[in-house]
Amino acid sequence: MLPFILRRFAQAIPVLLAIYTITFFMIRLAPGSPFSDERKVADHIIEAQQAYYGYDQPLLVQYFTTLWQHIRLDLPPLTSHVGLTSADIISESFPVSLELGLWAMTIALALGVPAGILAAARQNTWLDYTPMSLAMTGICLPTFVVGPILALVFGIWLQWTSVAGWLGPVDRILPSLTLGLYYAAYIARLIRAGMLEILSSDFIRTARAKGASELRAILVHALRGGILPVVSFLGPTLAGLVTGSFVVETIFQVPGLGRHFVLAALNRDHALIMSTVLFYASLIMLANLVVDALQILLNPKLRYA
């Protein structure tokens, strides 16, 4: 197990380096600079700013300086949040994104798993069609439509929840729900497919023949197998939930990392773009590693494959 993890860590280094390089040159090639603004100011002022933030050096020097700064985790100052570094932004906003992701995942599982089981147990009845059609609707409606509608209904008309912000517990409800519904739909479909496969297999037939009740056959025997694809789906999804929530973060004014990323790109805050991209990439790789390690632990057959 340890060599496997070490090998994966070793592989991560060139990947991160490649990501760093691509991103670095991509943002430098792009039009617009962190120091441009609607009001044009005298050249000597721009030059002073460039000198302070290290933009007066040749590009390659900047490439290596920034790289070294990231290796030492001594991050460069930001231009869109004067006085801070990416470390401040990430440490403040990542927990928010993580919390949102976990709540969303909880909702997704709480809604998706029962719906999937129900659909599989009563295949081709209305108990199957209804949740599956709902699930499909969840997948087909863009988050930026679902979000404002939920805010309108629950926040404005019913006043059960707040419409935006991230201050009290009430503020967690709508963003988590909006984000969670989409994944609930996916999970429901996965569970249904996984369980249908197992329900038609021999050992369930044997269990039924031995007199196991239908409920027991479904919940104990079939679910154990049916939930496996969901487990392997969870890791990357959690990473995706955390990284891909910027639409929800925008609609509900959640101070998470996703929004910072989009704003950093719009503000051309190169340092913040760089750090967030590297952070996300590390996060995805870590999630993949955990999932792979878990699968190896759970399934001995894979160990020697």
């Binding site: 990947v15 990501i19 991509m26 943002i27 990284t243 989009v262 790109a265 790789m285």
Partner: peptide, 17 residues
């Protein structure tokens, strides 16, 4: 390796830049 890239983010970056 490519799976590990935060692609959506790179697409956004590409679109902005």
């Amino acid at each position: 390796i490519l799976y590990a890239l935060p692609f959506l983010i790179l697409v956004i970056l590409l679109m902005v830049l």
